[in-house]
Amino acid sequence: MTRFTLDGREIPFRPGQTIIEAALAAGIYIPHLCWHPRFPPHGSCKLCTVKVNGRLCSACTFPTAEGQEVVSDSDELRRLRRRLTQMLFVEGNHFCPSCEKSGQCELQALGYYLGMTDSHYPHFYPRRDIDASHPEVLLDRDRCIFCELCVRASRAEGKNVFELAGRGIHTRLVVDSPTGRLGDSALEAGDLAARICPVGAIVLRDTAFRVPIGRRKYDRRTIAEVSIEEERPLLGEGNG
């Protein structure tokens, strides 16, 4: 069987697997936000950055190869990932104490996992539109991290409700409907696109604060443990 090494450990892989897929299949978590086992990689959040034969690469897009030497768990990468996470926090409006996603948010859980205690950078405090027009789903763009998981999920569902528009700092999540409002789109609460948001940007109404503090997803488990438990089984047949 073909193998590469990850942090000194030999990892088997199948041809065509990316580094993040082979690692997760072997029970090793590589931090990520925009990657999801059910969808093609987006390669934008860069949190899965690893060193492949000494060069920085995104583990979600980089293919495995025989004899590769990959480093993921190092102080250097941990520092870089922490800085990236801090940039995501200051770029949006992420106020955990008043957010209904708190405790179940991947961005927050990643901050915990990486030992992030402050924002480091100046805050942008951008002004972004909130869309409360949908009876079952709330779109709070303040918390969007532009991972495009909702875009990919909606595309796979054949609805194409979401898209990113604009560039750079002007990038924003837009909705495909005659009015541009979520309430006039084809989105339904049961859609994966309405449920896949890793942060609090797209949330289901009437679900907030149902789970008490202490029993929320990341209160007792790290994002690494949750990923191995919940995402690993979603890897393609024969991966897990």
Binding site: N93, F95, P97, S98, D118, R127
Partner: peptide, 18 residues
């Protein structure tokens, strides 16, 4: 030492920034 959400990122009072 910065203690708490407000000292670190503005916290709830910073909700007025929008």
């Amino acid at each position: 030492v910065a203690v708490g959400a407000c000292a670190i990122n503005g916290g709830i009072p910073a909700l007025r920034n929008r």
